[in-house]
């Protein structure tokens, strides 16, 4: 797993590559927490190069979404979610909890 971050005026864009499972989810979770701790609550996650995500990753997304939306201070949105991962998110009943975008320009522009 590899995470890169880009700060825009109105939001942070995370790009996550590779696989998120119980082994790598703590690092993913920590990166999102750090953004929240710095007062950044508008976050887009580019998943175009994400190969795999288990429920450990879903839990990190859920916890971050909760934190971002508290006091209406922001939101976490997902970008270019690969089909298999979208299907798993659907199975977990998560799709209604996250707005999704087809490309990063659109996602960043939505904030």
């Amino acid at each position: 797993m590899e995470i890169t971050t880009q700060e825009f005026k109105h939001c942070d864009l995370f790009k996550i590559k590779g696989r998120v499972d119980s082994s790598t989810a703590p690092e993913f979770s920590k990166a999102l927490e750090n953004a929240n701790n710095d007062g950044h609550f508008k976050i887009a996650i580019d998943m175009s190069e994400l190969e795999y995500m288990s429920s450990a990753g879903f839990r990190a997304l859920l916890a971050t979404q909760r934190n971002c939306k508290r006091y209406n201070r922001g939101e976490l949105v997902l970008v270019s979610v690969p089909e298999r991962i979208r299907e798993a998110l659907e199975l977990a009943g998560f799709t209604e909890l996250f707005k999704t975008f087809d490309d990063t320009v659109e996602a960043v522009g939505s904030f």
Binding site: S54, S55, L62, A92
Partner: peptide, 23 residues
């Protein structure tokens, strides 16, 4: 887990077992 619960009430645990059973 209650998959209809809204964001604030959505459970963090139990999801792995739920996915195993669904799949």
């Amino acid at each position: 887990p209650n998959l209809k619960a809204d964001l604030s009430e959505r459970q963090i645990g139990g999801l792995g077992v739920y996915l195993m059973r669904k799949i």
